[in-house]
């Protein structure tokens, strides 16, 4: 029992942070699947969602503020795609990626300007921020809620992709961009939908993440964003279950390493894993196989 009590906090922290990485990683992986673009601004969207919550609660009650910031984040994601990526649709892929890096820095610096560089404390969400005791380990409710919510959302997403018309269109576009356009699929609306879903999940992820780790600063999205990206690559970029499993593995391993006393190397582990995966299995755990056409 002592063993469980001593080690449970690490597993709990790992599962919850893994679930939060997963919600961000899905955004990376879906956009990559459809546009072959690594949306570097995604981590910063996550930070902006956190920042919006900080300011939103000063004007409105919490139960209005939460839907409000989710909608606003979705609009922001949609807007970024329309303004920064859509005009570059026929440009080389590298141009879009550089545009994404530009958006990332724009968001970070806008946040720096708005906050004046100071860390803002995330509002206290009742229930989620309460403490509970699980098998002798005390933690916030959000830690326990996160994995279930994440898995629930992923199941919904998979149903959406497999059983709806827009889902079918997404699968078609990810398989072959040009052909699906020729078949009459409205490419732009499919891409917008992808960004809307990605931003929605990032907004939910930000609520969960910042409720647990309450400091929102302009660079707060960078590290979770990078780790979620590693998770997406680890699981096989383009694959949704892959991204989720990758995120949980990274979150749990990171915390176990901290628990073993190698705190200094917890980040180094994540990035070493990225290198190893790229060398050993470049397509990741569940990545699409590269078929060479003759």
């Amino acid at each position: 029992m002592d063993f469980v009590r001593d080690n449970l906090p690490y597993i709990l922290a790992g599962i919850s942070v893994g679930g939060q990485y997963a919600l961000i990683a899905i955004g990376y992986t879906m956009v990559y699947g459809i546009l072959r673009l690594i949306n570097f601004a995604h981590g910063d969207m996550f930070m902006i969602a956190g920042l919006m919550a900080v300011y939103a609660v000063t004007w409105m009650p919490l139960y209005v503020a939460i839907p409000f910031i989710v909608v606003l984040t979705v609009l922001l994601g949609f807007g970024i795609e329309r303004v920064a990526y859509k005009p570059l649709r026929s440009a080389p892929r590298m141009s879009v990626m550089i545009s994404a890096i530009g958006v990332s820095y724009l968001l970070q610096n806008a946040a720096l300007y708005i906050t004046g560089g100071l860390t803002k404390t995330y509002p206290n969400i009742p229930f989620l921020a309460d403490t509970i005791t699980v098998f002798g380990a005390t933690t916030k409710v959000v830690t326990v809620v996160t994995p279930f919510l994440t898995i629930g959302l992923v199941i919904l997403l998979v149903i959406l992709i497999n059983n709806t018309k827009i889902g079918m269109a997404m699968r078609a576009v990810s398989r072959d961009f040009e052909t699906s356009r020729l078949m009459g699929i409205k490419i732009d609306s499919v891409i917008s939908m992808t960004f809307i879903i990605g931003s929605f999940l990032a907004a939910i992820g930000s609520i969960l993440y910042f409720t647990n780790y309450t400091g929102v600063m302009p660079t707060a999205g960078a590290m979770p964003g990078l780790k979620a990206f590693v998770a997406a690559v680890f699981g096989g970029i383009g694959s949704i279950p892959g991204a989720v499993i990758g995120a949980f593995i990274i979150g749990i391993c990171e915390n176990i390493i901290k628990g073993l006393g190698w705190t200094t190397f917890s980040d180094a582990f994540t990035f070493a894993l990225l290198i190893v995966i790229l060398i050993v299995k470049p397509t990741g755990l569940f990545g699409e196989k590269n078929i060479d056409k003759v």
């Binding site: 906090p9 922290a13 933690t139 647990n212 400091g215 590290m223 990171e254 901290k258 628990g259 980040d267």
Partner: peptide, 20 residues
């Protein structure tokens, strides 16, 4: 004695380490 890297915001395990 333990250290945390730049950009870290997850202190759950550090607090758990202190308890342990």
């Amino acid at each position: 004695y333990e250290t945390f890297p730049e950009g870290n915001s997850d202190f759950a395990s550090y607090v758990a380490n202190a308890v342990k």
